[in-house]
Simulated scan of single mutants.
Amino acid sequence: MAQKLHPQARRLRTIIVTVPIMGATALVLYERLVLGKPQRTIPRPNKDGVPKESEIPAEGATGKVGGPRAPVL
């Protein structure tokens, strides 16, 4: 069985693990909300094994969340 960590060492381990996850999540959200990159989807094949037309992303589709933004003054 592993030796128990000191509370400060546990805190440091938690920071080391969570900061990269938070950074990657923030980057993906920034790309989607600010830059307009579409959300990634998994195409689901129908019974023929071919994705439906409605599930294939359109050329240049943005998929922005929240609609148009008001200008900042």
Rank of each mutant, 00 (worst) to 15 (best):
G60K: 14
P57E: 11
L33C: 04
R40E: 12
A9S: 14
R32A: 10
K64Q: 03
M1S: 14
V50R: 01
E53V: 11
L73P: 09
I56L: 13
R11N: 09
K47H: 03
G66I: 13
T41R: 11
H6S: 13
P7F: 03
Y30T: 09
Y30G: 10
P43S: 10
R69V: 08
K37N: 10
P45Y: 02
K52M: 14
A9I: 05
E59C: 04
T14R: 08
Q8A: 07
I21V: 15
G60W: 04
Q3A: 14
S54M: 00
T41A: 14
A9D: 15
V72W: 02
P45E: 14
I15E: 07
A24W: 10
E59L: 07
D48Y: 03
G49D: 15
K52H: 10
K47W: 12
L29W: 05
A26V: 06
Q8S: 07
P45S: 12
E55C: 00
G63E: 02
G63M: 09
G66Q: 05
Y30S: 11
L33W: 03
G23N: 04
D48V: 10
T14Y: 10
E31Q: 13
L12W: 15
A70V: 09
M22L: 15
G23P: 03
G66E: 04
K47F: 15
T18A: 04
I15H: 06
G63H: 07
S54T: 06
E55K: 01
R40H: 06
I16A: 06
I16F: 05
R69M: 06
H6E: 13
E31N: 13
R69S: 13
V34Y: 05
K64P: 00
K4S: 15
G67R: 06
G36T: 08
T62R: 14
G23E: 01
P20S: 00
V50G: 01
R69C: 05
G66Y: 11
V72S: 13
G60V: 02
K4D: 15
A2V: 08
G60D: 04
G63N: 11
I42V: 14
R44L: 12
T62K: 15
T41Q: 11
P45I: 08
V28H: 05
V19M: 09
V19N: 02
L73E: 12
G60A: 04
K52F: 10
A24R: 01
G60F: 09
V19T: 14
I16P: 00
T14G: 11
V72C: 10
P68I: 06
L27M: 14
L5W: 05
P57T: 08
R40C: 07
Y30A: 07
T18D: 01
P38L: 01
P38T: 01
N46H: 12
V28F: 10
P43H: 03
I16T: 07
T18I: 09
